[in-house]
Design a protein around this nucleic acid. Sequence first.
DNA 1: GACAATACCAAGCAAGCGCTTGGTTTGTAA
DNA 2: TTACAAACCAAGCGCTTGCTTGGTATTGTC
Lengths: 204, 204
Amino acid sequence: MNQDAILQALVADKLVSAPDSARGRLLTEAARLFRDRGYERTTVRDLAAAVGIQSGSLFHHFRTKEAILKAVMVETIRLNTALMQAAVDEAQGDRAKLRALIHAELESINGLTGEAMAVLVYEWRSLSPEAQEEVLALRDIYEQLWLDVLGRLHRSGEVTADPFVVRRLLTGSLSWTVTWFQSGGKMGLSELTDQVMLSLGLID
Amino acid sequence: MNQDAILQALVADKLVSAPDSARGRLLTEAARLFRDRGYERTTVRDLAAAVGIQSGSLFHHFRTKEAILKAVMVETIRLNTALMQAAVDEAQGDRAKLRALIHAELESINGLTGEAMAVLVYEWRSLSPEAQEEVLALRDIYEQLWLDVLGRLHRSGEVTADPFVVRRLLTGSLSWTVTWFQSGGKMGLSELTDQVMLSLGLID
DNA sequence: GACAATACCAAGCAAGCGCTTGGTTTGTAA
DNA sequence: TTACAAACCAAGCGCTTGCTTGGTATTGTC
């Protein structure tokens, strides 16, 4: 199952907006602006101008500005959880599964959904506590994928550090790549994935 | 040379504000508020109230709100560069030096200067480009400490991944700890340092 | 004890903010 | 063609924002 098919399945279930719909385009622009300027610095007028409508018209699609932020986060998590799940299922063996997870997360951070992923990580505080809780519940599913693989690698002795700690260290490492890694640069995503595996001592 | 002595030397050179001065207290409160609410969400009225003066009086000490943010960042880097330098100098051998760096950075992130360090990492965008450049220059000194040690460990074969990449992965891991690590919890800073060294395959 | 310099207050201005309102255009299906 | 909902516009309200202003205490120095 390729990435496009996964996306289309989610769109069919109305779990994420179609990228070419009015709502989808708004969310894409929102992610870009929120990432570039930050949520607070982005005004509803900026957002409206980016999709070519009046600022007031935004509130026909979303009740509040925060609802836009929340939608960006929720749809991003849903898409990436599905992509991760597929990556894990395809790979054979736990080292390969871990590598697949790392590669998939790096792809989501530095690829097409990169802007939205950066928002998810760095605009967390801008969500109200209630919205945070909702999004957190979705994240748990996502995190469990990692913990399962890391737990098995720990029991087999291939990873000596604590799985929970390793996942958290990896979360930081991988999300931080958004600040320095250039997708078009001389190091590709696969080489970066190798470097991460190397630094974990999982390649000789 | 202990940490207090280092701080006092910097204060004597007017490179950082004394923590008990008016300016110092303002910067401490600013760091706390900027971290808790974010720079944009923190108003000058919030800041003034936190130190017990009127909002207008802030502008006697700083020309603009952004100047406060910049001062928080600049003073934090100056202090931590000095602390890191001392940590590296004291440790014997490159593994020990790396451990000292990791421990020192974790301490600065999760200890007393934690709020300011979080601001440095997560409020970067709120600085104007000119201010960013100034702060970046200070950061280079700081980063060189790491690259020297990692470079030697790489040449000796103890670290197989690229030193630049490892440093960046570590920057992410360590700064991210601010979101989950509890200083008062059952895992201490030293144990966390060990876990990081473990995950790098530098402890057997 | 005179005199700056420093630190602060009280009040408010201009601009920008999220969001609302009442009405018009566009798309869809009978 | 009619009917109706979804999508959008034009205007602006009420509030908050960073910052300014003119004046008053407080502090340090000789």
